[in-house]
Simulated scan of single mutants.
Amino acid sequence: MVREFTELAVRSGVRRVVLLSGRGEAGAQRAEAAVRASGAEWTVVRAAWFQQNFSEDFLVEAVRAGEVALPVGAVGEPFVDADDIADVAVAALTEEGHAGQVYEVTGPRLLTFAEAIGEIAAATGRDVAFASIGAEQYRAAMAEHGVPPEVVSMVEHLFTEVLDGRNAHLTDGVRRALGREPRDFADYARRTAATSTWNPRA
């Protein structure tokens, strides 16, 4: 799909292509190879786990409910702010000097999921707990809540394979692309808490 899209883009006159890729994922590496072979001025942005997964995706309801249960242990993850990813992509599309670059973007520090939830709790002033559960238990809970099987499979892959420690290190992609440090998780948590996104539903 990525190969067909980029080939169509180039045939249509597109000169620059930026791929949002993943860290340590075989499928992402295949997509990167397709973009490199497209003939466009390509840039790859390999992103860590988004900070916004806690507020704009499948974890937001768990945060509102006061407990986040996930099949992950004490592995560190350098959560990256999606605004940093967007800034890098915009720079790569609109500025010279980014063609042929691979920017691996992370936040400025490693946090376990328990530590990330702790920072959310501190920012909201609420009791938000984290529980590490088994993959089977998590799969059953998602199915019980009507999550489609393909989504269950994708999320289970992320937690059991990608979050196995292979990505527990920081990178300088944001600094290389933008000349500044990446946004910190604590700042994200404070900004998001101020919007009432994590307030429990009535």
Rank of each mutant, 00 (worst) to 15 (best):
R180Q: 11
V105P: 03
G146S: 04
G22D: 12
E96G: 13
L110T: 09
H157A: 14
Q29D: 13
R23S: 03
N53K: 09
T94I: 10
R201T: 13
P78Q: 02
Q29E: 10
H145M: 08
D172N: 12
A91L: 00
F58A: 12
F79I: 05
T6D: 09
E61F: 07
Y103Q: 07
D127Y: 02
V17K: 06
A47C: 11
H98L: 06
E150P: 04
A65E: 13
G107M: 01
E32K: 04
G66S: 10
M154N: 10
R180G: 06
A40I: 00
E95I: 00
A62G: 10
E136T: 07
G24H: 07
I120M: 09
A47N: 15
D127T: 14
R190G: 06
L158T: 05
P182E: 09
L19K: 10
T6L: 03
A141S: 15
S153Q: 14
S12E: 04
H157M: 12
D57R: 15
T195F: 02
A9N: 00
E104P: 05
R46P: 02
G13S: 01
L111W: 07
F54E: 01
F50D: 04
Q101E: 06
E77K: 07
A141K: 12
R201V: 12
P71T: 11
